[in-house]
Amino acid sequence: MDLFSGTTMRVLEKSLNGSQLRHRAISENIANVDTPNYKAKKVSFQDVLKKELDSSSTLNAYRTHSNHLEFKSSSSHPSIIQEQTSYTHNGASVDIDQEMAELAKNQIYYNSLIDRMNGSFSNLKMVIRGGS
């Protein structure tokens, strides 16, 4: 039995990977803010996470009430990194204010994932110590 192969840990790992990819794309956008004809990149992480969860096939859903939402899988997923098409005066599509806001939002998201992962490890540590 692998202690770190549970659904929660796999989802947290995929989420951290997505956050890292988003950070890299935002950093590239900020670095190229003045590069003529540069097209900003955006990571659509939610689609990537859905694809990973669909492919793992270990997440089974059971509806206990008819008003609960169904878990549906879709065979078509958009690409992970998409190029933006709005342009500035030099042909670039980077809005520095938007990128800085996305960077801050991604940092908060990343920190919340790390806190959740630390909580999982603390629970595991408590179990190993026998509840003390």
Rank of each mutant, 00 (worst) to 15 (best):
4 F>D: 01
5 S>C: 03
5 S>M: 05
6 G>V: 08
9 M>N: 07
9 M>W: 07
10 R>C: 07
11 V>W: 00
12 L>N: 10
19 S>F: 02
20 Q>L: 13
22 R>K: 15
28 E>I: 07
28 E>Y: 10
30 I>R: 02
32 N>H: 03
32 N>W: 02
33 V>R: 10
34 D>F: 01
35 T>I: 03
37 N>E: 11
39 K>L: 14
39 K>N: 12
41 K>V: 03
41 K>R: 13
43 V>R: 02
44 S>F: 13
45 F>C: 09
45 F>A: 10
52 E>K: 10
53 L>Y: 01
53 L>E: 06
55 S>W: 00
55 S>I: 02
55 S>D: 10
57 S>L: 03
58 T>V: 05
58 T>I: 05
60 N>R: 05
64 T>W: 04
65 H>Y: 04
65 H>M: 06
66 S>K: 12
70 E>Y: 11
73 S>A: 08
78 P>K: 05
78 P>V: 10
78 P>C: 01
80 I>T: 09
83 E>V: 10
83 E>G: 01
85 T>P: 03
87 Y>E: 14
88 T>Y: 06
89 H>L: 13
95 D>L: 01
96 I>M: 11
101 A>W: 05
101 A>C: 04
104 A>R: 14
111 N>E: 11
112 S>R: 04
116 R>D: 02
119 G>F: 10
121 F>M: 05
121 F>T: 00
122 S>G: 01
124 L>K: 12
126 M>T: 15
131 G>P: 10
131 G>D: 13
